[in-house]
Structures are given as C-alpha cells and as structure tokens.
Design a protein around this nucleic acid. Structure first.
Length: 367
DNA sequence: CATCCGTGGGA
DNA sequence: TTCCCAAGGAT
C-alpha cells in the first residue's frame, strides 16, 4: 500500500468533479489529429478505427505528434487495413518506417499485424490483457487502445500522465518508483463514461498546458485543484534519477559510387540491435577510440578512398557518434558481390530503408 | 529493475 | 552548441 497524504486523498475524493472539468475542457480544446475521432463526432456516433488507433499509438511511442503525422499518412495510404499490412513485405514496411527511429517498433508492428490477421480474424482484441500479449504492445499501448478504440475503462499512463498527475497531487517520489502510485491515481480519476476521451484529455493537457518547462498554469482547467499551481515546484516534477553521460564513439563510412550510373553500394545491418534490419553503407565498427588510419582494413575494395569534408555527427539514445566519410568511384563489377550487399541507383535511394544517420553520410559524400 | 533502442525540435 | 526530451517496449 502507498502512504496517502491528506491532500492526496482529498484529490481522489474529488475525482468526479476533476474528470468532469477536464472533459469539459477537452470538448473545447481537443487537438485535431488524423487518427482521432473528435468529441463532437464521437457524440454523433462515429466509431474510431482500432487499426488507426493502434498504428498511431505505436508510432507515438517516444515520438512527437509532429514527427508522426506524415508517416501515419504514408502508412494508411499504403496499407488501409491491418490485413493489408499483414500482406505487405516486411522490407517495404522498414522502408516506409525509415527515419522515424526505434526500428524494432516497425518489426513488431509487422509481427502484430500478422498475428491479428492470422489469429484474430483481422480484428484487434478489445481486452487490455489480450492486447498486452501482442508484439510491440506494452502496458501503455494496451490501455490506450482498449480505452480509446473500445471505450474500456483502463488506466492510461504515459509521460504526459506522469507529469500531470505528479504535479496535481504533488507526488515527490522519483520515477520509476512512483509509477504504481501514478497508475493508482489515474485509475481512480478515470471515469466510466468517456474513459477514452478522458485519457486523451490528460495527454493533451500534458502536451499543451502542463508542459515540462514553463507550464501554462493560468490556462489549466485543473489549476484550482493542483498542489503545485504557479509554483517553481511544478517544473521540478516529476522527479527523475539523474541520467548518465553519453560516451562518444568513432568510425568510418565508405561511400562507393559507380561512375557510370551513380549507384551507391549498400548493405543490410544485422536483424537485431542498433538500427536492426536497416540499410547502411559499408563501414568500420563504431568504437570509443578514434582511429581513421585503421579504417583501411575495412574498405569494401581497394581504391583511392578520399576523406570527405565534414565529419558526420549524430546522437543515438545512449551515445554520440562521429563518422569520417570516405568516398571512391568504381565500376560496379569491381566488387565480387557479397551476400546482403547491392548497388542502389540514385533514383531508388530515397526509397531505401536508410536511417537518418546514413542519409547524413550520403549527404556528406555526395553534396 | 537497468539497459538498450532514434530522431528532430526547442530552449 | 549542447542539452533536453516525446503518446514506451523488449530483454
């Protein structure tokens, strides 16, 4: 059991009033999003499409709305239903996902579509625990789909909810220890009528008003109930463990250009781990020791490799990367083709499953 | 529970 | 420039 402060209990006793005031705010301020059924359309009887809810929620994992919008459009145009996605080639899915990051999401997205099509007759299960069993669907996404798509009562807890509720009830316990307490508060606050709209309302509140920096407390529908309203304490919550420093890794990347066609030599990365299954140009390992001269051992073929101006700098989740780019011109037949490598003509380059760091490499080599 | 896993935009 | 972090999941 958690220790409940007096004020904290008071908040929970007022949950009926709190969720009504927030839903009222949501009716007027809900963001228009491509995958969302607006409150007024919902009242007119429009039902959300579980496929679109699922797709958007997976794309939104650790990713901003602005970054997701074009990808959501691309995916729903190419694959309008979960059956369409199940019938797609995984390689085409990876190509469409390229640039959005966290590529295991794309592989699990495809696996999940396959499972839903094969084992569930093309319909997503409605229960939270059944959704949780599907690939790429964790506690947050299972609750979000259950409540937004199927109107089930579920405690949706994401980063926004954590921020809003730790502030509202002044939970000073640092994350991740506070997670279970936050989930309890959310479960209590969530109404049985319009639970999905309520979840989206808390997330919208966190995204637009109760922001990490400089929250707009004066515009908040929960201001009068909030324990830290207009206080410097608001920005300090939720409390988190200090993060580790990112090391810097170094490496070299080889851009081989066919003089005739301009085709570029590419290869596939291993299926798991960093950038798993994505496409790259040949290169060295990325190590913490800077050693460009050692790169010569890794060239795809002997040639006059020239160092390109401008070291490519890129930051991943847990390290910084500095890549020295080398370029050489060579006919395609100079290379005894290795399994998993191919020459990609310039017109096809945009469609390759190239992660952003590799597009930076090509830009440094070719511009 | 800790670690690994991308990216782009804002302060 | 550098740092922060955004609708997390898998292992």
């Amino acid at each position: 059991m958690h220790k409940f402060t007096c004020e904290y209990t008071l908040i929970l006793m007022r949950s009926a009033s709190l969720n009504q005031s927030l839903l009222k705010w949501y009716d007027r301020h809900a963001r228009r999003l491509p995958w969302r059924v607006s409150p007024e359309d919902r009242k007119l009887g429009e039902i959300p499409d579980p496929y679109r809810i699922w797709l958007s929620e997976v794309m939104l994992q650790q990713t901003t709305v602005a970054a997701v919008k074009d990808y959501f459009e691309k995916f729903t145009n190419a694959w309008p239903s979960v059956e369409d996605l199940a019938a797609a080639d995984e390689e085409d899915v990876m190509k469409a996902w390229a640039g959005l990051g966290y590529y295991s999401r794309a592989r699990n997205l495809k696996k999940c579509a396959d499972t839903v099509a094969r084992d569930h007759g093309g319909r997503f299960p409605e229960a939270e625990d059944a959704l949780l069993k599907l690939p790429g669907i964790g506690p947050y996404t299972a609750a979000a789909i259950a409540t937004i798509a199927f109107d089930r009562h579920a405690a949706v807890v994401d980063g926004n909810v954590e921020r809003v509720l730790t502030r509202l009830t002044q939970i000073e316990t640092p994350l991740p220890e506070a997670k279970s307490q936050i989930r309890d508060v959310m479960a209590t606050l969530t109404p049985h009528d319009r639970p999905g709209d309520f979840a989206q309302a808390v997330m919208d509140l966190g995204a637009t008003i109760c922001t990490p920096k400089r929250p707009a407390c004066g515009l908040c529908p929960w201001m009068s109930d909030c324990k830290v309203q207009n206080s410097s304490l608001a920005e300090a919550l939720p409390r988190k463990a200090p993060k580790k420093e990112k090391p810097t890794r170094y490496g070299a990347a080889f851009v081989a250009v066919d003089r005739e066609s301009g085709a570029i030599l590419l290869r596939r990365r291993p299926p798991k781990g960093l950038l798993g299954g994505m496409t790259e140009v040949p290169g060295t390992d990325w190590s913490e020791a800077f050693d460009v001269s050692g790169a010569q051992e890794h060239v795809p073929f002997p040639s006059e490799w020239r160092i390109c101006a401008g070291v490519v700098k890129h930051t991943f989740t847990h390290f910084h990367l500095r890549l020295t780019v080398l370029r050489a011109y060579a006919p395609q037949d100079i290379l005894r083709m290795v399994e998993g490598t191919w020459w990609s003509p310039p017109a096809a380059l945009d469609e390759e499953a190239l992660p952003t760091v590799m597009r930076k490499v090509l830009s440094a080599a070719l511009d």
